[in-house]
Design a binder for these strands. Structure first.
Lengths: 220, 220
DNA sequence: TGAATGAGCGTATGGCGTACGCATCTGTTT
DNA sequence: AAACAGATGCGTACGCCATACGCTCATTCA
């Protein structure tokens, strides 16, 4: 049935090798030549299975996250909370994930699995299908943004956590930005961002879930 | 007082030229050589004012957004809504903004101006400083994520808006992902994402602001 | 009038993504 | 068994990229 030489590698192998490099040395170390070398193939051999490096990055993006967590029984709120925390942990485990420029909605199996998991968590609610999707998109958006703010891939403020507050103090002019000055002086930026799941994340998550709860209550 | 040759360009000029190129031809067209050519200088001249291309990208990122909008008088909720919509519009006007990989919290004057504006909108509320920051971070995170999902910088589903729903139908296995299948069949993904501010955004925004309102009510 | 300082820039280097074409292998057809 | 067709592996080559280094020139101070 199928003619021609049998392939010795496939796109999944390439994706795996690229992810291994990114895990070990960061996304910048992932080049077509490097991936090929790691696999024992020639550079151009990869292009039989992957159209471009951009496509490889998209494949990495989808394959980056492990499987979604098992959801506990109980209220939708607890289940979504578990889901969101697991998503944050999964992103934190691969800091290069946020460095990949992605456009448009997700299509790969990895992301769809997470999407399905979150929709399952909302199973018992009276939300309409479109509303469920809106809730999940909003939540996953929030988690990714929070991860972006609090994980420091290579350099930065992590060494001295409260340096950020000091830096702001030096830059902000109290006359032109009084509201910002006020919260800086109150020390709102001096709290240390620990690398576990922080209080900031919990606060934002609670806000969002409160909003969902209000919407459900209005519906019922 | 100051010895040596007088500079003929500065970092702001370079940033402006780079932004002009990105606006016209996309972020990929921005190279040090190209920026220099557009300014009538030699490539290496730029490095006297900018340490690296990464630094230039960071400068572009901060300078990308216009000034925050004038906030209307009234309730915090309306004011934050205006702010969020303006932020979304500003991001949409420069699609390359989301393509710049940024790590860590914002420091530039452009972002701080937006931050101050949002904090001003929360001025009359009984929230503590840290909570205000949490609300603004969560909201700006949500807006950026929504922009990422709905703007299609170069290619994609924009031509046939409901193609996405069809693509999902073809890929998703009803047995392994029943919850996802259900919402797909309900047509939740077939709605056209217009390029104005869409219903999805309004829905997510309302959820988040509902959450803030609930928190404020609990406080008072 | 030198000396010091900093700006503009020419050259060179190493890495990158990838277009192109050839050689090689494999299943089909004669 | 022999010829064929189609897909894979890959060597070469090209153009673009960021940027290290050092020279030259303009400007100001002693």
């Amino acid at each position: 049935m199928k003619r021609g030489r049998k392939p010795t590698i496939d796109a999944a192998d390439i994706t795996r090798a690229a992810i291994a490099i990114a895990d070990a040395e960061g996304l910048a170390a992932v080049s077509m030549a490097r991936v090929a070398q790691e696999m024992g193939n020639a550079t151009m051999a990869l292009y039989r299975h992957v159209k471009s490096k951009d496509e490889l990055l998209a494949l990495m993006w989808d394959a980056a996250m492990e499987d979604p967590p098992p959801l506990p029984d109980g209220e939708w709120r607890d289940r979504l909370g578990v889901w969101a925390r697991a998503l944050l942990r999964a992103i934190r485990r691969r800091p290069w994930f946020l460095r990949i420029p992605i456009s448009g909605p997700p299509v790969g199996p990895g992301n769809l699995a997470w999407l399905d998991s979150a929709l399952t968590a909302l199973g018992g609610t009276p939300l309409e299908p479109g509303e469920k999707v809106g809730v999940v998109m909003g939540l996953s958006t929030f988690v990714q943004g929070e991860a972006r703010l609090t994980t420091t891939p290579s350099q930065g403020f992590q060494s001295n956590p409260d340096q950020y507050g000091q830096a702001l103090r030096a830059v902000v002019d109290p006359r032109t930005m009084p509201a910002l000055t006020e919260v800086i002086e109150a020390g709102a930026f001096d709290v240390a961002h620990g690398d576990d799941i922080g209080a900031d994340f919990d606060f934002g998550l609670r806000l969002f879930l409160d909003g969902v709860a209000a919407h459900i209550a209005r519906r019922a």
